[in-house]
Amino acid sequence: MEWFFQQLINGLALGAIYALIALGYTMVYGVLRFINFAHSDVLMLGAFAAYFVTPAIWKIFPAQSITGALLITLVTALLCAGMGILIELLAYRPLRKRPKLTVLITAIGVSLFIEFTCQHKAVFGSKTRPFPQLLPMHDFHIGNLLVNSNDIVVLGVTVVLLVALWFIVQKTKIGTAMRAVSFNMQAASLMGINVNRIVSFTFGLGSALAGIAGILYSMKAPGIEPLMGIQPGLRAFIAAVLGGIGNLPGAALGGIVIGIVETYAGGIAGVSNYRDGIAFAMLIGILIFRPAGLLGKTTIEKV
């Protein structure tokens, strides 16, 4: 029983991060209908941004203070948002009217470009760097369970961001515009919505979430390197599809489900060696019964 709850905590903390990344995938898909392969690299850039920003901020605010951590997160989120907007502007916007596959291959190209450039020794190099501890760590004992303050931070931040995102998408003007663009880009632009601005905003928002996820992920595993985004990126991508791609609550749910299942599976001897395949197996199982994902709506093909 203790084992069960401990794994639940581990799984939730992992799943929350997947959920944050999956939101970015799903938002971009909702608006532009293509999978932004470079999203996982924005996560990595976020981790590195925080790595380089931290010493500067710690000069002003005391190290490991909450204000410091918040400020680091804010700066990172802004930098990543800028990065996401830039990627869209340079690489995807010129191809907006082209077949989606063209954009997909470009996205793969962008992803490879970011990874190999960052691996170059003049940029970050391929060495793993120690990520600074942004907040002091505490262990909380609940009965026999051990909860680390990091896990609570990760879960708390995810919940706050999810609520904020829901608010932006559902209650604000720009969110309404986002939904309109996602529904029908052409009709939206006829209604006077500046589609380019909305797309930029979507990329910025998604990338900011990826950047924050990058920080949370690095707090959990404080070793950062240029390829660190690939593995969580792939899982989050699966999570987005699992939940029904284009569907925001679906992405969050998918992330949590994958995090939990993966953690339980990882804890069973003889199953843990299949861990790379487990998320996929689950995805395939679910898609066969619900072809549009857990919360996705099946669209009826119009003739």
């Binding site: 898909y29 991508f237 599809v241 791609i245 790379d276 395949g277 996929f280 197996a281 072809p291």
Partner: peptide, 28 residues
Amino acid sequence: VPSLRLRGDYLAIVTLGFGEIIRVVFQT
């Protein structure tokens, strides 16, 4: 047979998944 009911990106990710599962099986 099971995955071709899916379309577009869903099919892409499912085939990617099968590819990875095949790799993991050989790896273990």
